[in-house]
Amino acid sequence: MKHIPVLLHETVSALALSPNSTVVDATLGGGGHGREILRLLGPKGTYVGIDADPTALANVSLPTEGARIILVNENFRNIKSVVTEHQLQPDAIIADLGWRTDQFEEGGKGFSFHNDEPLLMTFGDPSKHLFTADDVVNEWGEESLRDIIRGYGEERFAGRVAKAIVTAREQGRIKTARALADIIAAAVPSFGRPSKIHPATRTFQAIRIAVNDELGALQEFLKEGFSALAQNGRFAIISFHSLEDRIVKRFWNEQITSGQAIRLHKKPIVADDDERTTNPRSRSAKLRVIEKI
């Protein structure tokens, strides 16, 4: 399935780019936002695409003429080192915190609960991570599992799910995403299941966040990205769940309260009815933008 970027025109428009702008796209992904950005940049403009997943850089298709293009395989938490290495000061920074469709459907790392894939859930090379989803599921204690499932997944039945995982692994190691999903589905009572998502969705989210330290990386990215941003530069973030959005909102408010930034929109921008219909993943997307002063 082709990945469709969310809030594409709203996001790029909010960056207020000129042909000579330097733009950091901190989540290159499939290049959807990148192609639209490059359409607005001239030969003196610079586009930096960052992604922790090396397959994104290998597979992305971007225009070969026009602005200078720099692609970097790196976690966006290290944005400061990326711009310092290339001696750049961004006029705009964008990050889409969602996931590419192909990462779930074709990644082979256990992100999708529909596939018999190994439990990895790492953005990049599993060997560069402290632990994988397999370690979390098969080695972490019941209390630790419950805490991350409740805290990162906001799963109301975290205790039941954690207990079911621990009980199941006593019979043998849980090796695949589908096996884990079946265990979770059996643990979540039918009366407590959300109507529009798989009962394993929240637990998979929690494990993925823990494996990749997503919230810690986001906090570091916001701090280092804002520090690197040029005066009058714009910083745009698209979030998809409340944990991310809460961190972004809090950081934005801190910069505004301290007199370092201004809010460009009173409320976050969300997808209109047409986009929600054609691209269902946009339903939970929120775009927040600030300008550094």
Results as ranks from 00 to 15, higher is better:
Arg281Phe: 13
Gln171Ile: 06
Phe191Gly: 09
Glu10Cys: 11
Gly45Trp: 07
Thr277Tyr: 06
Val136Lys: 00
Ile94Ala: 03
Gly98Ala: 14
Asn115Phe: 05
Lys223Glu: 12
Ile70Lys: 00
Thr64Lys: 05
Val211Cys: 11
Asp273Ile: 11
Gly216Ala: 09
Asp134Tyr: 02
Val211Pro: 02
Leu38Cys: 13
Asp213Ser: 05
Gly225Phe: 01
Asn78Gln: 06
Ala16Phe: 03
Ser227Leu: 05
Ala158Leu: 03
Lys196His: 14
Lys249Gln: 15
Asn138Met: 13
Leu7Trp: 09
Ala210Pro: 01
Pro118Lys: 01
Gly98Lys: 02
Tyr47Glu: 13
Thr122Gln: 03
Thr11Cys: 10
Ile293Ser: 00
Ala164His: 11
Arg178Leu: 12
Ile209Cys: 08
Arg39Phe: 12
Glu139Asn: 04
Ala261Cys: 07
Asn253Met: 01
Lys196Leu: 14
Leu62Lys: 02
Ala206His: 04
His114Tyr: 03
Arg288Thr: 14
Asp102Gln: 04
Asp273Gly: 01
Met121Ile: 14
Asn232Thr: 09
Glu214Gln: 03
Ala200Asp: 09
Glu36His: 00
Glu214Phe: 09
Ala164Met: 10
His33Glu: 12
Pro199Thr: 02
Trp252Ser: 06
Asp96Ile: 11
Ile207Met: 13
His3Tyr: 14
Gly98Glu: 10
Gly108Arg: 02
Pro63His: 11
Lys80Thr: 07
Gly30Arg: 01
Gln231Asn: 07
Ser242Asp: 13
Asp182Pro: 02
Val166Ile: 13
Gly32Asn: 09
Gly153Phe: 09
Ile69Ser: 09
Ala179Asn: 06
Val166Asn: 06
Arg250Asp: 15
Phe76Asn: 06
Thr167Phe: 12
Arg178Cys: 06
Arg156Tyr: 08
Ile149Thr: 11
Gln103His: 10
Lys196Val: 05
Ser282Arg: 01
Leu57Ala: 14
Ala164Leu: 15
Gln231Thr: 11
Glu291Asn: 02
Gly225Lys: 00
Ile174Tyr: 07
Ala58Phe: 13
Asp273Pro: 01
Ala52Asn: 02
Gly30His: 03
Asn232Phe: 04
Ser195Ala: 10
Asp102Lys: 00
Ala58Gly: 06
His129Ile: 02
Pro5Gly: 09
Gln89Met: 06
Arg250Leu: 15
Ile207Phe: 12
Asn20Ser: 11
Asp102Cys: 02
Asp272Val: 02
Asn20Pro: 00
Asp182Asn: 06
Glu154Cys: 10
Pro268Phe: 08
Leu15Val: 09
Pro199Cys: 07
Asn279Tyr: 08
Leu62Phe: 08
Ala92Asn: 08
Pro268Asp: 11
Gln87Gly: 10
Ile148Cys: 05
Gly107His: 01
Val211Ala: 08
Ala177Val: 13
Ile37Asn: 11
Asp96Arg: 01
His9Asp: 14
Gly153Asp: 14
Thr64His: 04
Arg68Phe: 05
Val211Lys: 01
Asn78Cys: 08
Glu36Leu: 05
Thr55Phe: 08
Ala217Lys: 00
Glu139Lys: 02
Leu97Pro: 07
Gln171Phe: 10
Glu85Met: 05
Val188Glu: 06
Arg234Lys: 15
Met121Ser: 03
Ile207Thr: 10
Ile165His: 05
Leu88Lys: 04
Asn279His: 10
Leu8Phe: 07
Arg150Phe: 14
Ser61Arg: 09
Gly151Arg: 12
Glu143Ser: 11
Ile209Ala: 04
Asp96Phe: 04
Gly32Gln: 05
Asp182Tyr: 00
Trp140Lys: 00
